[in-house]
Design a protein around this nucleic acid. Sequence first.
DNA 1: CTCATCATGTAAGGAGTTACATGATTGG
DNA 2: CCAATCATGTAACTCCTTACATGATGAG
Lengths: 192, 192
Amino acid sequence: MSLRYALLAILRVGPLSGYDLQKQFAQSVGHVWYAPDSQIYPELRKMERDGLIEGEEQVRGERGVRRVYHVTPEGDRAFVDWMNSPLEYQRVRDPAHLRAAYLESASPDAARRFLHDHIAEWEGELEQWRGELTHIEALTNPMLVRRLQVTADDERERTIAFKRFAYEGLVERALAEIAWARRGLKLLDELG
Amino acid sequence: MSLRYALLAILRVGPLSGYDLQKQFAQSVGHVWYAPDSQIYPELRKMERDGLIEGEEQVRGERGVRRVYHVTPEGDRAFVDWMNSPLEYQRVRDPAHLRAAYLESASPDAARRFLHDHIAEWEGELEQWRGELTHIEALTNPMLVRRLQVTADDERERTIAFKRFAYEGLVERALAEIAWARRGLKLLDELG
DNA sequence: CTCATCATGTAAGGAGTTACATGATTGG
DNA sequence: CCAATCATGTAACTCCTTACATGATGAG
């Protein structure tokens, strides 16, 4: 159910079409909550049906149309309510650590490949999250800038501080995963 | 698709009924891959249909029956193939960091509660994982002991080493999450 | 005899994945 | 005029969740 709140988080800054939303999404919340367009468009329709957002058809060129969505007061309330309610944690389902626990069943080569892939995977995430962190600190993230424009002065510091806090946590996690996999490679060397 | 490999990992040690499997599961692989019985029983049926395991009906008392499953050679091969193939990573979907990034929209109280809950959540996991780690090192984990009984001497060290490696990683992750949330609480204090 | 535990599920629904489908507009 | 990108989806499928359902056996 977090997808709709991720979408609301973006739409609360200002109205967007599904297409623009999806682009913004990929460059902001998408770093913590992935969603493909095939999920975003239907979810927007559902949210409209539930009264959280409203879409207006806009003409574009001769025959083109696009739906521009804005958050309704109910949608705004729903977002704040969600923010103030306890978070539902997902059950652990960790394929990498599952595999790591049985790595003796893999060939030494495959074990090595697995750990290298793990490093590559998290280095990819790390790059994303570090990039975001840089944009947050330099105020060059377009979403954040738009957001700060609609934020009262005394709230700006908080807004930035929490974003930095969130992404710092992600960066640390990526670094920890990489360090862990490197230790695994060392372990493989030791075990021969 | 990892569930079936998690189940195979346990069944490879020796035949088990769905019920026993489910119990063992909760105390071993369940720490990295959660699955309720309502998912385990049907998955076992599917795995049987796919020829990875075979179930034998055993009588129990007067009218009671239970199906005891064992891994077929195909099942064994499937497990090893999976272990040797690249792991499919799931897309990031992290409700906690999503919320953290927008914590300025929560009331200060709710923000505090969120971080306290986060700490409690990960302390719960930490306890589980640390417990497992202790059982691994003291060789008091029943699954591991049974596993070592069917493992060649020269493979025992590897078997234990990888389990320790996996759970150490999980413990570190839990500690990092807790440390992160504590820093969040400090940040809240500073922001007033 | 009764309660804990053994034993095995089904049913309905939500969330997410992958692949496919279609057409409009704008810049070069 | 042609390619990039704008724009919005559907369809089929798997996986997971939640809640419910049912009955047998063994220990005290």
